[in-house]
């Protein structure tokens, strides 16, 4: 937290133009989609799992939305509904693979990731989707991204300044609030943390452990699908190459979140802060003319430092408290 404040102050002084509302909103907008995905990963981390398929779910959702609107010529509502359904279904399958088939979480979701990356390319033979593209039967795709759908990615709400807050940021904040309340303040969230810490003990106090684990993966799938929809709405086309960085960035945000407030465990507030932290850092660096190719290096360094901080402190605390 201190670090975050320090960073903001530093960049405000060092990079003229950093400290104004537009710039702040720009940071928020750049982290909104990663942040949404990161919140999903957080729920799976809480139950002691991990979801590697979120990036692939998001891009699948992006392609699905584009396909439904452009090729099948359906409305925005249908597209969004199908995407959310797809996310929930993928989450359900992930959960079943992990809970019923007892496949380790990393492997199950890794498999799902590959499967989805492949699957999303099949309908379009590996091409991106845009209005006017040539279809396999030689005709031209006539559907368009409807206004309502693009609104999701491009509309900005007025707040003090006209057209300030973009829709994805609002969605991110709402999801962050919901996940934060759910994990931290409901009995379901508490049971999820209990499962993550000692699954057997939680089962022996009568909690439906399997259902909770599946639910965590479904939440993760749905949030990833929302992320994909927002990305599609921002881009306005089904770009096959977008979203490459989503997985790593959002996992990084969730893991950096461990270090926030010394929680040393996954938490929604930390995840949101982690996403913001990375966003501010990158924005500030960009404004100070750091080259774009240093970005991944910086993110990696932040992640490793945060993990060191978290786990070193946790082990120190553990050593002292054992006596």
């Amino acid at each position: 937290m201190l670090l975050l404040a320090g960073l903001v102050i530093y960049f405000s002084l060092a990079a003229p133009g950093f400290a104004n509302p537009r710039s702040a909103v720009f940071v928020l907008q750049s982290v909104a989609i990663t942040g949404i995905l990161a919140l999903g990963v957080t729920t799976t981390l809480v139950v002691g799992g991990f979801d590697l398929s979120i990036g692939a779910v998001a891009t699948t959702s992006l392609m699905l939305a584009a396909y439904v609107m452009v090729v099948l010529e359906q409305s925005a509502v249908v597209a969004v509904a199908l995407c959310l359904l797809m996310g929930a279904l993928v989450g359900l399958i992930n959960g079943l693979l992990i809970v019923k088939c007892r496949i380790p979480d990393l492997l199950a979701t890794l498999g799902m990731m590959f499967l989805l990356i492949g699957l999303q390319r099949i309908p379009t033979q590996g091409n991106s989707i845009a209005t006017g593209m040539t279809l396999t039967d030689g005709s031209t795709a006539q559907g368009i991204f409807s206004e309502a759908f693009l609104w999701l990615g491009r509309h900005r709400f007025d707040l003090v300044i006209e057209r300030l807050i973009p829709v994805p940021v609002v969605v991110f904040l709402l999801i962050a609030l919901a996940v934060w309340l759910f994990l931290g303040f409901t009995r379901h969230g508490r049971l999820m943390y209990a499962i993550g810490s000692n699954e057997r003990a939680t089962a022996l106090v009568g909690a439906p452990v399997e259902r909770y684990k599946i639910a965590a993966y479904m939440i993760s799938g749905v949030t990833a699908a929302i992320g994909g929809v927002l990305l599609a709405a921002r881009l306005g086309r089904g770009d096959i190459a977008s979203g490459n960085n989503l997985l790593l960035d959002s996992v990084a945000a969730a893991l950096i979140g461990f270090a926030v407030l010394g929680a040393a465990r996954p938490n929604a507030f930390g995840t949101a802060m982690g996403a913001l932290f990375v966003g501010i850092l990158l924005q500030g660096m960009t404004m100070m003319n750091a080259p774009y190719y240093t970005q991944d290096f910086v993110k990696g360094a932040v992640l490793v430092l945060a993990l060191m901080f978290t786990f070193y402190l946790a082990s120190r605390r553990g050593a002292v408290s054992r006596h």
Binding site: R190, S197, L204
Partner: peptide
Amino acid sequence: NAVVKDFSITDNLTL
């Protein structure tokens, strides 16, 4: 089988 190590006394007791 019983202790949730990451939890406080309160959270363990009321689980």
